[in-house]
Nucleic acid binder design. Structure first.
Lengths: 190, 190
DNA sequence: AGCTAAGAGTGACCTAAATCACTTTTCAAA
DNA sequence: TTTGAAAAGTGATTTAGGTCACTCTTAGCT
């Protein structure tokens, strides 16, 4: 467990250094969780008590439409943060699912604890500020790619941006992430 | 100008209170700018020196594809923050345009000044942390709406979410925001 | 008030991608 | 090592939405 917490500390300190005292305070607000492939981290309709930092593994966050079709909002792996951020922030029942594509391990942070460590340790507030900002920028680029690019160039762009991800994820899920049918994506690869 | 700065202070204090000293420090890092309808706040290819808080007015942020077609990334009005966040954060030439749909006024914040006030005043770091988080949540919902909803329901959703905006913006721009052609949107309205 | 230009509606036609149906390949669990 | 299920490929058909061309309407400007 010590090494796992070290990874988390390194993750924080990529942006802002923490004193040992600060880190001890911060780390005491996380709890550990481990799940097997196919298990759910978050289910629509249920309370979303945590955001999760992924120590190891791979998950998909997705919503299911009226026709039962799955739409991938995000893939998240080592060093990523994942949650139903909307439900988490407003402390209401979630509307998306998050499940494991591989056996995965997480550090869990409740909203109360997040606010506590942000108010207590300014470096942590700044960490999440910068992280959120990066996330915002990424989502803006994804929106632009959905609005401006063809399916084919969206796929190439993703291949280029996250090559390791593609190896770990079935193509039908990539298709869903790109907003295109499995069949159409298949016709481009070949 | 005093009343305008008061508006900005109110905006900050919606989330976290500031002492008068803190506020004086913070506000000294902003500068005022005013533009007429059709003038550019940001142009692709040029440096993006600021993020902008909108005191009054309405702007559109958009990118232009190879065919010269405009794709709206964001509309922003009173109390919104707008920039080419990606270029701003990385201090590189921008890739989007922002221009005024109405005469508009702004408070401008440079990256250097933003970091300065965030490190100096934790409440400001927390303010931007929460704001970024809200922005992230909004963009996730927009992505989901692009992936899961039909054009018609995306339009209804937007009408419902930002009714005042629709009144101030030509429908062809709404169409562009929704990722659909002017003609197709027109057929739904009627 | 009159004029220009932008915005908006609408019909005809076209195309990219969805859908459906089926086959082939890959992989993991018994 | 077999075997059943998930993943992936592919052909035929359908369809939502794009594009083009034109008209009608609205809003600034002088």
């Amino acid at each position: 467990m010590e090494e796992k917490l070290d990874l988390l500390r390194q993750h924080f300190e990529e942006l802002f250094a923490l004193t040992d005292d600060e880190w001890n305070f911060v780390q005491s607000h996380f709890q550990y969780k481990s799940l097997k492939k196919h298990q759910f981290l978050i289910q629509a309709g249920q309370a979303v008590d945590f955001e999760y930092w992924i120590i190891k593994g791979l998950v998909k966050a997705y919503s299911i439409d009226e026709k039962g079709k799955e739409h991938i909002l995000q893939f998240a792996m080592e060093n990523y943060w994942v949650s139903d951020h909307c439900a988490f922030q407003h402390q209401e029942p979630g509307s998306i699912f998050v499940d494991c594509l591989e056996d995965s391990e997480f550090f869990c942070l409740s909203l109360e604890n997040r606010e506590k460590i942000c108010l207590q340790v300014p470096a942590v507030a700044n960490f999440f500020r910068i992280k959120s900002n990066h996330g915002y920028i990424n989502l803006q680029q994804r929106i632009l790619s959905l609005l401006t690019m063809t399916v084919e160039s969206r796929y190439e762009y993703l291949l280029n941006k996250l090559p390791k991800l593609i190896q770990r994820v079935p193509k039908k899920l990539i298709a869903s992430y790109l907003g295109v049918s499995r069949e159409t994506l298949s016709r481009f690869n070949s």
